[in-house]
Simulated assay, not measured.
Amino acid sequence: MLDDTDRRLLRHLLADPGLGTAELAERAGITAATGWRRLEKLTAAGVIKAQEAVIDWRRLGYEVEVALRFTLDKTEPRAFDEFLAAARLVPEVTGIETFLGRVDVRLTVIARDMQHYADVYRSRILMLPHITDIEALMLIATIKDAEALPL
């Protein structure tokens, strides 16, 4: 599906998402017009889903990041839908993922400090519906955080 030119474009896009089309094309060794057409084709095919800003929450004063793993009450038919709808309303929740297996849902929660986290946990997280079990994993360090593929 992808040829070497597409792979070069994607590698440069992943390395520096802020580059304009002309600069990406130049680095990939093609004309700007060719680069634009190929990027449009990759976007239309769903290979490129979006270009987005990545915000460093720590620089904005959020020092605590916790992954919470939930097991939900599977005897309740609306448990997943109601839990997910309520979790989306918690401003400190920056990520929601669902799983098959022992864990049903994982939420990523940020907080300014441990007191803020404790307040969010007690007043918002514990109020989410249909929880049967919660496990907390506090982030200590991020060793690798890349969405890049070996192109």
Rank of each mutant, 00 (worst) to 15 (best):
E40F: 01
V47C: 01
K41P: 00
D119Y: 09
T94V: 12
G20H: 08
G101A: 08
A25S: 09
D81S: 06
A118F: 08
P17Q: 09
L128R: 05
T142L: 06
V93K: 10
D81F: 00
R38G: 03
F99Q: 04
E82R: 03
V120P: 00
D133I: 02
Y121Q: 10
R38Y: 02
A45C: 03
M138F: 15
E76W: 07
D113G: 05
R122I: 03
T142R: 15
P17W: 11
A15E: 12
V93M: 09
K41A: 10
R11A: 14
E63C: 02
E52K: 13
M138I: 13
L42E: 11
A85H: 09
I125L: 09
I143P: 00
I96F: 09
A111K: 06
R8A: 10
F99N: 03
L100F: 15
R88V: 00
G35D: 03
D4P: 00
L149P: 02
I96E: 07
R59Q: 15
L60T: 02
Q51A: 15
L128I: 08
R11M: 10
E135V: 15
L19T: 02
I96L: 12
A33T: 05
G18Q: 10
T31I: 02
I30W: 01
D4G: 01
A87K: 08
W57Q: 13
R38Q: 06
I134C: 04
G95L: 11
T5P: 00
A25G: 06
L137F: 15
P150N: 12
V105D: 04
R38D: 04
A146N: 15
T75D: 13
E26I: 00
L9R: 05
D113Q: 04
T132Q: 12
T21P: 03
Q51N: 10
L2D: 02
D119N: 09
P91H: 05
D56E: 14
A67V: 14
R37I: 01
Y117C: 10
A146H: 14
E147N: 12
T142S: 12
E65W: 10
P91M: 04
P91E: 05
T21W: 09
V103R: 02
Q51Y: 14
L72R: 01
L84Q: 08
A136L: 10
G35E: 06
P17D: 09
E63A: 14
T94H: 05
M1N: 05
H130G: 08
V66C: 07
I30T: 11
A79E: 06
D119M: 09
A141M: 11
W36E: 11
